[in-house]
């Protein structure tokens, strides 16, 4: 089943602890906090093409890719547009940790993909024990969001430019 339980490992928390420790959001957080997140997170494996989250559904969890590959998709004018392709080590849905909202994108596994899931409920509960750590982690989440935004915009603009040039429809940016 969950292949994180590698045969000889005696240490399920330790494994996730290491993964989280090296991640963008939790790097720098104290070990005891990361340990709790590792304890409360769970693994889930998705088959190729399986939907991980759906635009319009309630956002409850944040996801960290352990292996595989994930497409971030936005529906626009009844068309699906892949805005980004994420690889192991990337977070997505991290805003769900901070606020309640409905997903404004969908995520889908392009191959067999293993993901570590942290729920907002767990996040809230841990940080209510360590309120002084909240600011730091929130800042990291927002920074991550900004770099993601830059990335996606660049990605879209690249494609726009390519499309614009090939269609020879004149300059896109005046």
């Amino acid at each position: 089943m969950s292949s994180s339980t590698t045969p000889e490992c005696n240490c399920r928390i330790t494994l996730d602890f290491d993964i989280l420790r090296q991640s963008q959001v939790f790097a720098g957080a104290p070990a005891e906090v990361v340990k709790l997140f590792a304890y409360l997170s769970r693994h889930r494996t998705y088959q190729p093409g399986a939907s991980i989250l759906l635009q319009g559904d309630k956002a409850e969890n944040c996801y960290l890719i352990i292996s595989g590959e994930v497409d971030i998709i936005t529906r626009h004018r009844d068309q699906e547009i892949v805005v980004q392709r994420l690889r192991p080590g990337s977070f997505f849905g991290e805003l769900a940790l901070l606020a309640r909202f409905d997903w404004f994108f969908s995520a889908r596994a392009t191959q067999e993909t293993e993901i570590l899931i942290i729920s907002r409920e767990g996040f809230e509960k841990v940080l209510s024990k360590y309120p002084e750590k909240r600011d730091k982690i929130t800042e990291k989440v927002i920074q991550l969001r900004i770099s993601r935004f830059e990335n996606q915009t660049a990605n879209l603009l690249d494609r726009l430019l390519e499309a614009g040039l090939s269609a020879d429809s004149g300059p896109l940016i005046g």
Partner: peptide, 12 residues
């Protein structure tokens, strides 16, 4: 229950 109880693990 190994799959559910993350607190501990047993070996293969």
């Amino acid at each position: 229950t190994p799959g559910q109880h993350k607190i501990y693990t047993i070996s293969r």
